[in-house]
Design a protein around this nucleic acid. Sequence first.
DNA 1: CGTGCAGTGCTTGTATACAAGCACTTGTCG
DNA 2: CGACAAGTGCTTGTATACAAGCACTGCACG
Lengths: 237, 237
Amino acid sequence: MAQSNGRRTSRRGIYLKLRQMVLTLELPPGAALSENELAATLGVSRTPVRESLILLAQEGLVQVFPKIGSFVSRVDPAQVADAQFLREAVELASLDDLPPEPDPAVVEELRDNLNRQQHEDLGLEEFFDLDEAFHQGLMRLSGHGNVWTTVAAAKGHLDRARRLGLHENVSPAVFAAQHHEIFEAVVGGNTQLARTSMRNHLRAVFSDIERIRAHSPELFATDPSTVPVRRNVVVWE
Amino acid sequence: MAQSNGRRTSRRGIYLKLRQMVLTLELPPGAALSENELAATLGVSRTPVRESLILLAQEGLVQVFPKIGSFVSRVDPAQVADAQFLREAVELASLDDLPPEPDPAVVEELRDNLNRQQHEDLGLEEFFDLDEAFHQGLMRLSGHGNVWTTVAAAKGHLDRARRLGLHENVSPAVFAAQHHEIFEAVVGGNTQLARTSMRNHLRAVFSDIERIRAHSPELFATDPSTVPVRRNVVVWE
DNA sequence: CGTGCAGTGCTTGTATACAAGCACTTGTCG
DNA sequence: CGACAAGTGCTTGTATACAAGCACTGCACG
């Protein structure tokens, strides 16, 4: 329910850019962020950078330690589980509010989305974008499109865990098929089938994460608050 | 899932104070907020005040119009409905995850909470605090206590609408009784009854709001973005 | 060789200065 | 009298300066 008015400020752009970089793991979990360094790189002053980091910190994607440093937060399994519970509760409840006659425009949009998911040479980021749009479209179908904003803001840790998973192996094809199954149940008016399909889909996504955690534990937070490590000062020349 | 580390900064205190004032309607919907004025009142510089307002803006409690002004956002019926849907979905789903043997400590805490709700001379703010703690306690019972943080952050508009409602008339006694009903069903292990009780309770809270909206429409937002009005410059002496 | 302590360079938090713009007031001119 | 334009005072956005503190380096001394 972020209420940002459309005015263009440099902060807005920086916030979106950093957020994207964190979610896509271009800025990996644990990476050190320096307000000064980011400001220099982006060609602005500390102020808009700092304000962006504060917003990201409130979302849980960044941790700020006063007088020490700012870091991309490690993927917290507890927050992943919380986000999983949240999205499952919301998306399933949304299915109960589907109208008898869904908006044809949205249905068409979803159908087009599914077609694109089946393309052979689909990049990972493209798939994630389509996945996001698909789930949000379903929420819009039941009139709760804006609630997706809240869910999306809360599932940053889950999204990063998913990207870790799909980076390893596993083609998106399986998930695309599940999307299709959900869609057919929805347009067919079979709410019960839609619910079970959706639940299975979301749980499958979730179970993938546990596998990854055993594989790459260093990207996950172990203790509730892992100790921040100031990076060594490296001087070039 | 706000990830604020415990370090004490003046921003933290200011943010919490302003948030409280907005939620309790001490700063009423539509009120103009000036960064300079707030800074002077609180005895700090613009910086921590400004950063607090940015956070409140992201929560939707404040609207910032560059070069024009900052305002406490009017209660948006759409956001109230969104929050209602969100909390209902989450709280009902949480009941499904109740363990066979609930944590005795939390159960005791809830029982104590309910006792306090029955006090005759209970102030409104005290009731709201108890109400908040009760619902959060139920979530902790099923292991989803942290998800409540996300829900709480998203339901600012709903909370303000509720306060408008209870300011008018209606004693909290009715809601306290519903709390009791839910609690008994939970400790009795009757999940189905708990669900229906919870749903009825939340819907009762929600229906109260529609009544208020007809009564005091000026506090609600009408258009998606109501036009901000710069307050007239008043000079004393 | 080991230990302690000052020094250095970074970090974020806060305060302040300047820039850009909206809305209203007021003066001036037709 | 009416209308237009410059002026005034506020607003937030951005840039910069200073304050406080952590972590490490490296030297001095026992």
